[in-house]
């Protein structure tokens, strides 16, 4: 792995080059985060100098696809923050189905299948997934392809299985996984419940409103102005009474949308859109 060190000006130049090449605009990312991601992604791609990186972005789409793939932050596990998923399972999802015949769930900005599989496992009882639409979007087509392929990182199994038990009370995730050449894959029918759409920007409004947006630990990488833009899209994309699920460390308090949502449970970051 090469060692790439970037200053503020170089970060601006690289994000501008990405935007000019038709990739999403990363200028709304927090400075330390995007600097670190660019340095890691550049290093992983064998780049040690910003000029070389910009030149590759401008001339080599295949390279840039791989570079953007390395910019994405992996999710850490299935059912991260089990208490949030338990609240979804016990209260929020029943409420959604009580009020909607065919609810729509939207998972924007996905980098792995973790949140999709977590949601599927919650909807599995009574085959609720058959009465739902699940839309998975990502800025990285390579990631979407990987999510659809169902590859699961073996190293996440132990913690994911523990979380699964906490959330569902069931015992073992193994039955949902197939092993091929030493690698774990989610069973194909689990992932086929979703529609996979590429995003050209970080968050593009869907054609019709949705009932629940699962957008966990994504806004932590954005600056506040960009968070407000993203929340505007989410707010407009949600039905009144719909839900936004964020990461445990995220808040709307510092944003313009603090008064646009209420929390059904003070301890968990699930927000209901108010009219």
């Amino acid at each position: 792995m090469a060692n790439l060190t970037l200053g503020v000006t170089e970060v601006r130049e690289i994000t501008a080059a990405l935007a000019e090449s038709g990739y999403p605009d990363f200028t709304g990312y927090s400075l330390f985060s995007i600097t670190r991601r660019l340095e890691i992604a550049g290093g992983n791609c064998g780049i040690s100098e910003s000029g070389m990186l910009i030149s590759k972005i401008n001339s080599d789409p295949l390279f840039t696809d791989t570079f953007v793939d390395h910019l994405m932050v992996e999710t850490t596990e299935l059912f991260r923050d089990p208490s949030v998923w338990k609240l979804l399972r016990d209260n929020i999802i029943p409420d959604i189905f009580k009020k909607n015949d065919h609810p729509v769930f939207w998972l924007p900005g996905c980098s792995t299948a973790d949140d999709l599989v977590s949601l599927f496992l919650l909807l599995e009882d009574d085959k609720l997934f058959e009465r739902s639409s699940i839309i998975v979007t990502s800025i990285c087509e390579k990631r979407l392809k990987n999510i659809r392929a169902g590859r699961f990182d073996n190293q996440k199994f132990k913690v994911s299985n523990e979380n699964y038990k906490k959330v569902t009370g069931k015992t073992d995730l193994s039955g949902y996984l197939d092993k091929e050449e030493g690698k774990l894959y989610w069973k194909k029918d689990m992932l086929s419940v979703a529609d996979f759409l590429p995003q050209k920007s970080h968050l593009e409004e869907l054609s019709a409103p949705v009932n629940c947006v699962i957008f966990r630990d994504k806004m932590i990488y954005f600056n506040l102005a960009f968070c407000n833009r993203v929340l505007d899209t989410i707010y407009n994309g949600l039905h009144t009474g719909g839900f936004l699920v964020t990461g445990a460390g995220e808040t709307l308090v510092h944003t313009l949308y603090d008064k646009s949502f209420i929390k059904p449970d003070e301890n968990e970051n699930i927000f209901r859109k108010i009219g």
Partner: peptide
Amino acid sequence: NYHLYVESGNRFALSTE
């Protein structure tokens, strides 16, 4: 389960890297 960053503008940022 989060990294804690100091970001520009004297604010905290979290990360799941």
